[in-house]
Write a protein that binds this DNA or RNA. Sequence first.
DNA 1: GATGAATGAGATTTCATTCAT
DNA 2: AATGAATGAAATCTCATTCAT
Lengths: 218, 218, 218, 218
Amino acid sequence: MGVTEEVRSPARSRRLPRAVRERQILDAAVEVFSQHGYHSASMDEISDVAGVSKPMIYSYLGAKEDLFAKCIRREAARLLEAVRMGIRSELPPDMQLWHGLRAFYRFVAEHRDSWTVLHRQALTVGGQFAGEINQLRSKAIDMVAALVVTAGTKKGLGPAAEFSGPALAVSLVGAAESLADWWLDHSDVSEGVLASWLMNLVWLGFNDLLEGEIWQPS
Amino acid sequence: MGVTEEVRSPARSRRLPRAVRERQILDAAVEVFSQHGYHSASMDEISDVAGVSKPMIYSYLGAKEDLFAKCIRREAARLLEAVRMGIRSELPPDMQLWHGLRAFYRFVAEHRDSWTVLHRQALTVGGQFAGEINQLRSKAIDMVAALVVTAGTKKGLGPAAEFSGPALAVSLVGAAESLADWWLDHSDVSEGVLASWLMNLVWLGFNDLLEGEIWQPS
Amino acid sequence: MGVTEEVRSPARSRRLPRAVRERQILDAAVEVFSQHGYHSASMDEISDVAGVSKPMIYSYLGAKEDLFAKCIRREAARLLEAVRMGIRSELPPDMQLWHGLRAFYRFVAEHRDSWTVLHRQALTVGGQFAGEINQLRSKAIDMVAALVVTAGTKKGLGPAAEFSGPALAVSLVGAAESLADWWLDHSDVSEGVLASWLMNLVWLGFNDLLEGEIWQPS
Amino acid sequence: MGVTEEVRSPARSRRLPRAVRERQILDAAVEVFSQHGYHSASMDEISDVAGVSKPMIYSYLGAKEDLFAKCIRREAARLLEAVRMGIRSELPPDMQLWHGLRAFYRFVAEHRDSWTVLHRQALTVGGQFAGEINQLRSKAIDMVAALVVTAGTKKGLGPAAEFSGPALAVSLVGAAESLADWWLDHSDVSEGVLASWLMNLVWLGFNDLLEGEIWQPS
DNA sequence: GATGAATGAGATTTCATTCAT
DNA sequence: AATGAATGAAATCTCATTCAT
């Protein structure tokens, strides 16, 4: 079309305000960390991908460790927010759980890098970020536990109290995470189906399944 | 035999048969990898812990990557073997599953380093060992899937077939792993209780629990 | 009074005349250089302390090296001036020397930063500022030498001429400097006493001291 | 001369024992530090001069700071030893002092680099090595103070006691150092003459000099 | 068989300095 | 006049890996 192809690129615009640069850098960092992991990721590559020189990263976001921590925090906040928005608290507990799971899987699908960083890479750094990650997981677990307890009290709770609520929640979250990972390699399933599978496992259990029962969104 | 053999230095014994040396080194490697992770572990420390010089490691087990791979393979084989030994195929499926889980948790308790390397550290190496790990997981999953299918066919399978067997197995394995991690920080529970909790989740499901049902080993 | 003048930020006032800015910057530079030394001092910190942006420093006083040179020159001039003002040329040579020393120590006490920069830090820069410093020392030495010569000629000079006047002056200056440094850590002595000690060393010498003689200001 | 000029250099011999390498490295470090100062000296240059790769320096002598500390300690020990050997304790105090000074100046002449590192560069590093240096200076000062006190008690000490012995010693040491520095640029004087000058200053003092007295080795 | 000696290559981080507004 | 934004260049340090004995 006769476009002069750029004498001076406006794409790589210069002299941007700090906030913009910080976002660029964080985006790049998440991408690179998710691909190579914390240790193998190099500040050089991050600065390349961000289109920024290395000193700027240090000046704006600190050392590699700080940068990684900031990535984790941002992505964790995003993920939690997404799940929170997904849950509709006016629905019955099982439907809440189902919607929460769907929101979770939608997030994973739409932000693979974020999920990878949070799930796989955050463990890498000598337990240094175990705190951050565990907070995230704790919040997720609390949400689940709240649902179960809510459901339980409605029906009178009963002997479920004998079981460690946290342990159940831990298991569910682990199952959901594991399934998310599996999904990354089997993406031909919708997030609704995924959530349904999980509901059938944790809501009904193998036994009911074997009996022919099925859970499905009403 | 009258061989004086060594006036001094029995500590750092020499001329051991190759197989022994290899085990020494692998043991040290598993210990160090589990403590620091793949990247932060240094060949220097491994050679120190093994009581062997670095060139020997390279000569016997290859480069760092190879060494790590061999660690993973050995520990994976051990874990699988332990679980296999735990299952008693003459029992009904739910009891098989329960015994398998108990064996798994016993292994984790008795070989924390092995478990740490397998579960936490193997992920960190940029997916380089995803293959190894996935094989292990696959085998675990297959074992679970086989149980479910066995149970299913006895009863006529039914609509459980509509659900991805693998996905359910993946979820169960994820839940078991997650619970194992949680256990590392809450070790005041017996492995039997742990396995029972998980059975209640995956065999009965939340719903039955809420109804007051409980699964317990017969 | 009633001038509103500034709703905020009276601290970082703008549009000051160049001379004022330059003084601000030099003051800050002397402070920072004296604390961290030439190399460890960062232009960033200097600009912070000065309350001025870095480009301004470069525009007004040049690169780091220039800035340091200007610091040294200013402080050297101040020190020399202070000593000159201290000497009363109408007094006999020994009293002149004594008053000069007192003035020197007063300066050191009142401008520790200046003295630190001149004495300690100026040496560190790979002899790059040896020239500046040596000029200062030369002037100090010349002043001392003049005193001695004056005294000498009055009395007929004699065999003192066989001794290198400069060398004696160098020694005296070195002794004075060394004592100044010592004083920084033993500040509980008055500058008069300090000067007297030195007079007893260089005017009388150990020998006379041992004989029971003492020099004291008349 | 028809020599085949080296197909493989034995000069840069390889695989030397550790002790030898350490000495090589320390020698190189002293040379480079003395030329450029602590900060401007680069580990690269030191490794070049030493004919050794950088990792070896780190492996044998530690980080830059450690390396510098080790340089200082070694040179300080050498200097002290040289002075101690110079003093002949059977002589009268003034002769002891004179011999000590001569030994000091001989050392400075023969090990300019050592002296430069000790005197000029050691101050550079943010007072981090002030301790090391002050220990050295303290020992020198103690030696001088001991001489003066010895002389003093022989004669009955008298009012010299009123003067701070340490302060006098500090001054003398400062004078000696200063004169050593001056000497580096005026090397056409023998170390005996240098020592004599200083003796005339500190033993006799200006006053006696003006009176025509002279101190000279008996 | 076994190891002390040795290094290439690359990682993180800092800083003086300048542009463009 | 004044500064936030931006970077080239270099320094320290570490580590997996291999010779040569």
